[in-house]
Design a protein around this nucleic acid. Structure first.
Lengths: 216, 216
DNA sequence: ATGATAAATCTTGTATGCAAGAACATTGAC
DNA sequence: GTCAATGTTCTTGCATACAAGATTTATCAT
């Protein structure tokens, strides 16, 4: 798991940010983190540098690191880009999927059906993640898959909030059905369009996002 | 200019990689870099950590940092994603551009015309960059613009090679014309399609890329 | 001469030390 | 009582130190 201390710290702090243990705007004190993880400041700093590079924390000169607070508008922009990348992944998947890809996608879809009909939004969250990752893999573009996973991860907390909105799980699963159909039919443009719509948060869904963001 | 030493080092090393001073696969020795830039190993390591986080260098445990060698296939994948993001930027620009955006785009386009008809592919390279950045700006999506700039930067060396292919400058400029027309007409879908085609390297252009990559 | 083994050297990973800037508190003036 | 100025403390930024793994070199046996 832990190649070295820095990578472990990077993952730990990143998870802390994703899971909202370190809230947006929170100060990340070097010595505090160092003592907490039982290491010295050096690897902590190196981990923070990495998180700075990928845009998760801001390092203000001589004033320490803070968790970046994206704000609703930027979150929207990120979903906008995510929608486009997912659309691309879908269209590529429709053209390139193998038998193994089909199996994986259908399995993830079946799991989604189970958690969806059970009304278990937490379980659905994980199954949904697997479903989308299966599509990234089926795109057979390593770079695209990496980009999608990274963005997916950053949007994780907000995506989770989305699923709590009433009927969103059922709606999401219904959309998945159409997406699977388009991909397995090899209809690249349809897969692209459906995935784009599935991911983007338009109209009232943006209002929902802002509302749920404000309430935590 | 230099906020702090680490940022300066990050930029210097990144530029070195982009400009091929540090070739793909090259080892980045910490003490060597430290003495070269007149600093200690600590900030060098922190800079390398950042470059590792954005995928420019690989850090093998206990064995040092090397410049990542993407290889033709991955380069192709990166252009594929770039094309998609540029397409999105174009479609958003077509819907959102302001008077100031129009002015900037037209000015950059005029400069492209000048360097193109002069046959100066180096000058065209820079004007082309300004042209594309003007479109990112006109998209009025800060996140998208950042992603585009970052990817554009990483693809810089290969893009440059592309422009050396015969007639590519003239072809590129002609495509710009149609793109400007679509954006300023507010035709989002047309702008998206044209930009996607403009950026993606399909068919023989991929062969050209591989050939030019091999020859350096 | 070639291969293996062991020793020396080099490099990385982490800790610690020190100086400079920022935050904070105390004191004094109005 | 409020505000400002100054001194103290805390935190960061970088350098240096040291230990452990990796690499290279040298020696020896076959």
């Amino acid at each position: 798991m832990s190649e070295n201390v820095v990578q472990r710290l990077r993952d730990e702090i990143e998870n802390g940010i994703i899971s909202n243990d370190f809230a947006p705007g929170a100060r990340l004190d070097e010595v505090q983190l160092a003592t907490r993880f039982g290491v010295s400041r050096t690897p902590v700093r190196e981990a923070l540098m990495q998180l700075n590079a990928i845009g998760l924390v801001e390092i203000r000169p001589r004033r320490g690191a803070v968790v970046i607070d994206p704000g609703p508008h930027r979150i929207f922009e990120m979903f906008e880009v995510m929608a486009e990348l997912e659309g691309l992944a879908g269209s590529l998947a429709a053209r390139r999927f193998t038998d193994a890809d089909r199996t994986t996608i259908l399995a993830a879809h079946a799991d989604c059906e189970r958690s969806s009909s059970a009304g278990d939004s937490d379980a659905y969250y994980y199954d949904n993640e697997r479903f989308h990752k299966a599509i990234y893999t089926a795109s057979h573009s390593g770079f695209l898959a990496e980009q999608c996973v990274a963005l997916h991860r950053r949007l994780q907390p907000y995506r989770r909030l989305q699923l709590r909105v009433r009927n969103r799980v059922a709606t999401s699963f219904a959309e998945h059905g159409a997406i699977v159909e388009a991909i397995l039919a090899g209809d690249a443009e349809q897969a692209r369009t459906l995935l784009r719509q599935h991911v983007s948060i338009q109209g009232e869904r943006f209002s929902d996002l802002v509302a749920t963001m404000a309430s935590r």
